[in-house]
Computed example of a mutant assay.
Amino acid sequence: MKKLKTTDALRSEYKRSDFGELVRGKYADRITEESNVVLLEPDIARAFPNDEAVNKALRYLLEVAEVSTRLINR
């Protein structure tokens, strides 16, 4: 099997001027805002084996916070 030669040059039918101005990271902010991915620190990730365990712990924490807030506001 022959290896294909790869070059970074544009094909002859394309002109660089046809593509307009290129902007690096043009959509990076939008992707960051729309993303719901949360990165855990390594020590925290070791404590939770999967996403279900993380969600269960956070729901419990919210429940405790709600109960303690009700006790304080009485």
Score class of each variant (00 low, 15 high):
Leu62Tyr: 04
Phe48Leu: 06
Glu13Val: 14
Leu40Gly: 00
Phe19Tyr: 11
Ile72Gln: 13
Asp18Ala: 14
Ser35Trp: 01
Ser68Gly: 06
Pro42Asp: 04
Ser12Arg: 11
Pro49Trp: 02
Pro42Lys: 11
Thr6Arg: 14
Glu63Val: 13
Val64Pro: 03
Gly25Val: 03
Asp8Leu: 08
Lys56Ala: 15
Pro49Val: 03
Phe48Pro: 01
Tyr27Gln: 02
Arg16Ser: 08
Gly20Lys: 06
Arg16Met: 09
Phe48Glu: 00
Glu41Gln: 06
Ala57Trp: 03
Asn50Val: 04
Glu13Thr: 15
Lys26Ser: 06
Glu21Asn: 05
Ala53Met: 03
Glu33Ser: 07
Ser17Gln: 09
Leu61Pro: 01
Tyr14Cys: 10
Lys5Tyr: 06
Glu33Asp: 07
Lys2Phe: 06
Leu4Trp: 06
Lys15Ile: 01
Thr69Ser: 13
Asp8Pro: 03
Leu39Val: 09
Leu62Asn: 13
Ala53His: 05
Ala57Tyr: 07
Leu62Phe: 08
Leu40Glu: 03
Arg11Asn: 11
Lys15Ser: 13
Ala9Arg: 15
Val54Leu: 11
Val67Gly: 01
Asp43Phe: 03
Asn36Leu: 02
Phe19Leu: 12
Thr7Asn: 10
Asp51Glu: 15
Asn50Trp: 02
Leu61Met: 13
Met1Pro: 07
Phe19Asp: 01
Tyr60Ala: 09
Thr69Gln: 09
Ser68Trp: 04
Lys3Glu: 09
Leu62Ile: 06
Ala65Gly: 13
Arg16Val: 12
Leu61Val: 13
Lys2His: 11
Ile72Ala: 14
Arg74Lys: 15
Ile31His: 05
Tyr14Ala: 12
Lys5Ile: 08
Ile44Met: 14
Val67Gln: 09
Ile44Arg: 08
Ser35Leu: 02
Arg74Glu: 05
Thr32Ser: 10
Asn73Gln: 15
Leu71Trp: 08
Ala57Asn: 04
Asp18Ile: 08
Glu66Trp: 07
Arg16His: 05
Ala53Arg: 09
Ser35Gly: 02
Lys26Pro: 00
Ala57Leu: 02
Tyr60Asp: 09
Lys3Ser: 11
Val37Ile: 10
Ile31Pro: 00
Asp8Ile: 09
Ala57Arg: 09
Lys26Ile: 01
Ser68Leu: 14
Asp29Cys: 01
Asn73Cys: 07
Ser68Cys: 11
Val54Thr: 04
Ser68Met: 13
Leu61Gly: 08
Ala47Gly: 03
Leu4Cys: 04
Ile72Gly: 08
Asp43Glu: 14
Glu21Gly: 06
Ala53Trp: 03
Ser12Asp: 12
Ile72Met: 12
Tyr60Asn: 10
Ala47Thr: 05
Pro42Ala: 12
Asp51Thr: 14
Tyr14Ile: 10
Ala65Gln: 10
Gly20Ala: 08
